[in-house]
Design a protein around this nucleic acid. Sequence first.
DNA 1: TTCCGGGGGTGACAGAAATCACAGCGGGTA
DNA 2: TACCCGCTGTGATTTCTGTCACCCCCGGAA
Lengths: 205, 205
Amino acid sequence: MNWKERFPQFEPGLIELIEKEAVQRSFNAGDVIMRTGQYIKSTALVLEGRVKIYRENQDGGEFLMYYLLPGQACAVSMICAIQTHTSEVMAVAEEDSEVLMIPVHLMDDMMNQYKTWYQFVIQTYRNRFDELLSVVDNIAFRNMDERLEFYLKRYAEKTGKKSMDISHQQIADDLNSSREVISRLLKKMEQRNLVKLHRNMIELT
Amino acid sequence: MNWKERFPQFEPGLIELIEKEAVQRSFNAGDVIMRTGQYIKSTALVLEGRVKIYRENQDGGEFLMYYLLPGQACAVSMICAIQTHTSEVMAVAEEDSEVLMIPVHLMDDMMNQYKTWYQFVIQTYRNRFDELLSVVDNIAFRNMDERLEFYLKRYAEKTGKKSMDISHQQIADDLNSSREVISRLLKKMEQRNLVKLHRNMIELT
DNA sequence: TTCCGGGGGTGACAGAAATCACAGCGGGTA
DNA sequence: TACCCGCTGTGATTTCTGTCACCCCCGGAA
């Protein structure tokens, strides 16, 4: 699939510029696309696959904030590009993914010259901001059992799948919890007929 | 103080437009400037005082996200203005405050016509996004004792004061915790010589 | 002065979650 | 086949936090 079909709203001049200056990169499932603290040279637009954005702390803890789907962009890379120049988050490919990398030095001109780009950036800020607000809701107001349900439900929404190939340990990492807690909560959910548990796979019902 | 001195970066045409269309409003300490779910008619720029932005949940819980100081604006009111049309947060004046209200129907034109406004909006998104990231850090990775320390330290930074006129109950509300927990943690901080406790007042040392 | 309500201290307890310990199971590899 | 390692289940224990009960203290109002 051609990348342009992911961004039909872009105007011709912008498409031409991106065509000339941007680089398309492929990542395998599990690859780290961007590390916390890494110098940011490009803004990333997702073309195919699915990317998870994590917040990390010093002690090796990590916390899944949200997903990026095809047609979406990393708001953080747009922000960091101009402010701090190093990434505040980690981006990981959850599936094999295609990503379009646009050098940050072009951002200013693109914002000024191409209205469709400007609208895209504003829209990206808005969507990610909204998403961050619901992340705050979850960790500020909800217990782990509700956060786990939200986690599974969101996965189903984002992927359209009703089964998840994932270990309890990975879920615990995403929620910054521990494997035992997640196992126990999943068992309770199974007793309530919300899920069926298998090895390395969870069926959502 | 004239409002223009708070926004020296604005260009003449923009100042003229704001002068003509915006309304300046005064709030007393404790006044609610905007409620969750309220229809948004204006974008708010803070001229004087200090405004606290809260996220609320259905059960009456609230959670302080960040402060707005003079010269800053509510990113949420910019976002909601166009997307959902109702506020996702609550804004409360912590001190007597002056706020400039700009009707949202002007936003589109202002973004297009006035580069200094556009830059201001982008900058606002960035700052609030960064602030939200550190909020996520705190509640995702830190225990209540560290969150309390962050809360006090941030207050000192934002106000430049080294004493806080506030009850333990109000702190508990801001952190979505309970009065007893905050009292106990403050006592421990006092034993470590980080604070001195008084009635309705905390001295930061 | 007395009364009363809000602020603050403290112990007892309950529930959520993290941690430790250990056992069974399954799938891949030597 | 035998082995190993990662995934899962489960009990015991501890820590953190929220909740309940009850106390005293202060300051303003009557």
